[in-house]
Amino acid sequence: MVPNDRKYTRDHEWVMVEGNIAKMGITEHAAEALGDIVYVELPVVGDETVIGESYCVVESVKASSAVYSAVNGTVTEVNEELDAAPEKLNEDAFGNFIAAVEFTEINEDELMDAEAYEKFCEEE
């Protein structure tokens, strides 16, 4: 099930906004497509993120994938649990954020709600 409490990008990332903080992660669909995730190259607190640009890399044994930001802003927190346990993204992609960003801009128009995202996945 795709949760309703957040928005989605066409690159299969989710973003959950609370005040001026956007928590971002990858969707279950993305995690499944990657297969067994073996490493998450986390951003560093203080990094600037740019809409549509990579802020993180997720690795499986035979692939590496960039994770793109849905907001412009500054990373305030990273999910360091993923360092030791990258498999958490396979186990619960929606329950494990990658980074929290204090954002200055979010491109709402480009984001989908849960229903639209589910449809998008079906069509893809």
Partner: peptide
């Protein structure tokens, strides 16, 4: 191991 760091997977990255 740790091959996803390498050129055959990351290419220009």
């Amino acid at each position: 191991t740790l091959q996803a760091r390498e050129q055959h997977i990351r290419r220009d990255k």
